[in-house]
């Protein structure tokens, strides 16, 4: 304490010197996650005798990373204002079903159907946000209710039936590769970059984070917290729409169970990625890396023919471990200061 005190006005003149910047980078949770990801990837490659690097395995690895990444971001956007969105998973399924219906039964061309899915996602998200703001009911409960409703709607599109062969172009896109990487994954990366840009550089994005970080300070600075809440939910819905489009492209067939297994992973990725539930902090890179690591566990399971359920066990242990180590670190640093 005393050392910082002395430097009140004089200190921190020059931009941080290179070594300290390096140290700061090393200390971030993103760096830890990236290291983990690389180590995991290398270990997996070595133990499978390079099988990981074969074109097919690698492409599959990245292709199935796209949706978990986007869905994690969809949850992260709402966590940024300290709220939750339980409807991300079913909304993804609903948008996918509606888009498939539009192509097969309404005869819409694929690009329009894609647009419809995105708009639908954003509109439902907007509805969530407006409900939260106008009823002042906890977002957890509001999205619990809308999740139940959307669950029913999702089923209502085509009952238990499956849609397939909706668009040759879309499916081609799902299987296509560019520079050895699946196009769906590249799209997911592009979307992630946009989300990053939104939070890092745009005025609404910064206002949203300010509302999440300290609502009172934001209000004193003329930021509308209500607008931030609505925006966050709408954006979350839009990202669920993106996830729906990616699902349509890569899977080739959709039914009413799409999205059922996305809700819990949508929380796992941001939480492992270092996003605080209290709001105000986002990490697009951390969330993406966390999705990457979860995917590694998944692939390892497939490669070694381990029981599928080990994946959940390990993910659970990782989430708990990350959270606990964070709490312990905070406690230690408080003690030492």
């Amino acid at each position: 304490m005393t050392s910082t005190v002395e430097k009140t006005t004089r200190a921190a003149t020059a931009p941080a010197a290179p070594p300290s910047r390096l140290r700061r980078t090393v200390r971030t949770s993103e760096f830890t996650l990236a290291t983990l990801a690389v180590i995991g990837f290398v270990a997996l490659t070595l133990t499978t005798d390079g099988n990981m690097l074969s074109a097919g395995t690698l492409a599959a690895f990245f292709r199935f990373l796209a949706v978990p990444m986007i869905i994690g971001l969809a949850q992260m956007v709402v966590l940024a204002i300290g709220q939750m969105n339980l409807s991300v998973g079913v909304l993804t399924g609903f948008c996918a079903m509606v888009a498939a219906w539009a192509m097969l039964e309404a005869g819409l061309p694929a690009p329009l159907a894609v647009l419809a899915a995105l708009l639908l996602g954003a509109a439902v998200g907007l509805g969530n946000g407006l409900l939260v703001v106008f009823t002042r009911i906890n977002a957890f409960i509001v999205t619990l209710a809308t999740m139940t409703i959307i669950d029913g709607l999702r089923y209502g599109v085509n009952g238990p039936g499956t849609y397939q062969d909706y668009s040759a172009g879309l499916e081609e896109l799902g299987q296509a590769s560019l520079l050895g990487l699946p196009v769906v994954f590249l799209i997911a990366c592009a979307v992630a970059a946009m989300v990053w840009f939104f939070f890092a550089r745009t005025v609404p994005g910064r206002h949203l984070l300010a509302s999440g970080g300290s609502p009172f300070a934001a209000r004193l600075s003329g930021v509308s917290n209500d607008r931030s809440i609505v925006l966050a939910h709408a954006l979350s819905g839009l990202l669920a729409g993106v996830a729906a489009v990616l699902t349509l492209a890569q899977s080739g067939s959709v039914n009413a169970t799409i999205g059922d297994d996305l809700l819990l992973p949508s929380f796992a990725a941001p939480i492992i990625g270092g996003v605080a539930l209290a709001g105000g902090v986002v990490s697009v890179l951390g969330t993406s890396l966390a999705a990457f690591i979860v995917r590694l566990v998944d692939v390892a399971q497939a490669q070694f023919a381990i029981n599928r359920r080990w994946v959940d066990l390990i993910v659970g242990a990782v989430v708990l471990g990350v959270v606990l180590s964070g709490a312990i670190r905070a406690k230690l640093s408080r003690r030492s200061s």
């Binding site: 939750m84 819990l264 929380f267 796992a268 939480i271 539930l277 359920r309 080990w310 994946v311 959940d312 066990l313 390990i314 993910v315 659970g316 242990a317 989430v319 708990l320 959270v323």
Partner: peptide, 14 residues
């Protein structure tokens, strides 16, 4: 929420 969510994950597998 986080603690029980993580526990849920772990128990699903277990």
């Amino acid at each position: 929420f986080v603690v029980t969510l993580a526990l849920d994950f772990a128990l699903i597998g277990l």
